[in-house]
Design a protein around this nucleic acid. Structure first.
Lengths: 121, 121
DNA sequence: TGAACATATGACTAATCGTTCATATATTAT
DNA sequence: ATAATATATGAACGATTAGTCATATGTTCA
């Protein structure tokens, strides 16, 4: 008697599915790419960060201006800008004590618009 | 003496910024839309769900096949499918005791590809 | 120099989230 | 009916996270 299964919860749905599963597995992108993709969307998955990115698409802005715009504390904005910086979504330039942030990637807006298309069915 | 500040952390960066802030504020989409957009990306922000969506883009699949494909428990997949269902990203059809899931929205792949473009600089 | 300002950051907290485990529901086959 | 199978679901747990608060860093101006 053959041990069919060390892996999880193997179903007996239909042996034919085996073919489909193998086909799909062969076509899947690298595990690592999908992980990175999820990490990117995780950054987009917060309305504060979405607002910051949307604002920066309109104009370069300094930290305290963003805080005023979004009616949030400077600290909260600064923390989120760090996340956006790490994801290489924003860049900054210093002018004296003021730090101006702007978008690093041009097609962020395109991703957003595609998302809005889904939302508005 | 005017009270300049009920709102948070008002900066004195430069009064000129006032203009920019107002301009950007006027151009921002509805608060509600940005919130919904973040909710959508939050759903994309998990590698299990990304994998499920990517798989379903290749072929309609039943729950246990997805579990086998991703080497995860049926329960974990089922929970995630519920999230995807609620976000109207997948739909299902029942065939006896088997439930087949498929993509509900055609441009999910486009959003993913745009994301990959960013990742690969 | 020291005061004022702009930003960054570390510690903390409340809330959210993904998975597991146990179990419920529903369908098919015997 | 009962057993077997496919899926769904609720409770619980550990991990992650967004924002707050206090404070540190760095720059300008008097």
């Amino acid at each position: 008697m053959v041990d069919k299964r060390n892996d999880v919860d193997r179903c007996n749905c239909n042996v034919i599915h085996e073919e489909i599963v193998n086909m799909v597995r062969a076509k899947m992108p690298m595990e690592e790419n999908l992980y990175d993709l999820a990490e990117l969307f995780k950054v987009f998955g917060d309305s504060t960060r979405i607002k910051i990115l949307w604002a920066l698409d309109e104009a370069e802005m300094c930290v305290c201006d963003i805080a005023v715009l979004l009616n949030m504390t400077q600290s909260a904005i600064s923390h989120q800008l760090r996340v956006l910086k790490q994801a290489r979504l924003v860049k900054y330039r210093k002018d004296g004590k003021i730090v101006f942030y702007s978008l690093e990637d041009e097609h962020i807006k395109q991703i957003f618009n595609q998302g809005l298309t889904h939302i508005n069915e």
